[in-house]
Amino acid sequence: MKGSILQFLIFLLLFLSLITVFCLFAYFHWFDTGYHPGSMSTAGFLQVLPAIILRFLPLSIVVSVVISFFATLKFRINRFVSFLLILAGATAIYFFGFIGISSIAGTARKSMSQSVAFYPGRINPFEKQPIYFEKADNDKLYKTVLRDNAGLVYRDEIKRRSLEKVILSNSDPNPYYADLLTPPGFLKLLSRDLDRFNLEIKRLSLKSDYYLLFFIASQILFALSLWSLLRIPRWPLIAVILSLVLIRALFAFYSYWDAEILNKILPFVPSDMVKDNVFPLLLLVVSLVIFLLDGVISGIRRSRRGRTQ
C-alpha cells in the first residue's frame, strides 16, 4: 500500500515537473522566436499560460502514467491498488484540470503577441531581405536600405507592421537564428500530432463532459495497460525505451487514424454516439485486450511456477 502511494506521488511529481518544463520551454521558444524583450513580459506570458498548459496536458499525463511504472524497480507495489489509484487520480487531474483550465483559457489570450526587434544602424540579417535603417519608432522604420532580388533599395520609411507581418507569419523561425530555432524533425512531427490530438479533446469537450471523461479515462487506461507490455522485456532499460516508443506511437497513430482511417469507417458506424467516440472506444478495446493477454500470460507463468515447485 505504502509503495502504491509512493508510486502515485511519483506520478504526481513527474506530471508537475513535465508540465512545468514544457511551459517554461514554450515561454523560451516564444521569446526566442519573437525576440523583442518589450513584448515578452512575464505578465503577458501568464495570460497565455492556460492555453499552453492545455496543449501539453495530454502528453504530460500519459508520459507520467507510463513512466511511473518504473517505481516498481525501487518499491514493493500492490499492482491492483496502484492501478486504481493512478487511474482515478490521473483521470481526475486530467478531467478537472482540462475543464478548469479551459474555462480560464476561454477568456485568456490564446497566443502571445510577438513583435520583432529591429536594431538601428545595423544590418538586420533576414533570410532574403536584409534591412538597414537609421532610426525607428513604434510605427515606422526611417531611412531604410533593403536588399531584395533587384539589389539595394532605399526608402525613406517603411511601416514596421508590414515587415513584422512578413516575418512573424512566416512558418520558418526567426531568420536571425534560423539554424538554432529550427526544431528537430522529431519534435515537429510530435507537435503536429499533439495538435490533432488536442483538437479531438476539444471537440469532445464541446459535445459533452461525459464524452470527454470517457476519452480521458480511455487514454489513462491505455497508458496503464502499457505497464503490462513493459514487464515483458525483463530488461528495464529496454522497457524505458519501449515506453517512449509506445507513447510516441499513440499520438502518431491518432494522427494517422484521423487523417486516413476515420472517414473510411464512419459510414459503417451505426449510432451517432459511437461515431463521436470511435477512437476512445478503440483505445478501450486495445487496453482490455492487453489486460486480458497479461492475465492469461500471468496465469500460465503462475501455473508453471507451481508445477516446478
Binding site: F25, F28, D32, L181, P184, L187
Partner: peptide
Amino acid sequence: YSSDQLYMF
C-alpha cells in the same frame, strides 16, 4: 534544442 532555447533566452 531545448537547451539552445534556454541559452538563447
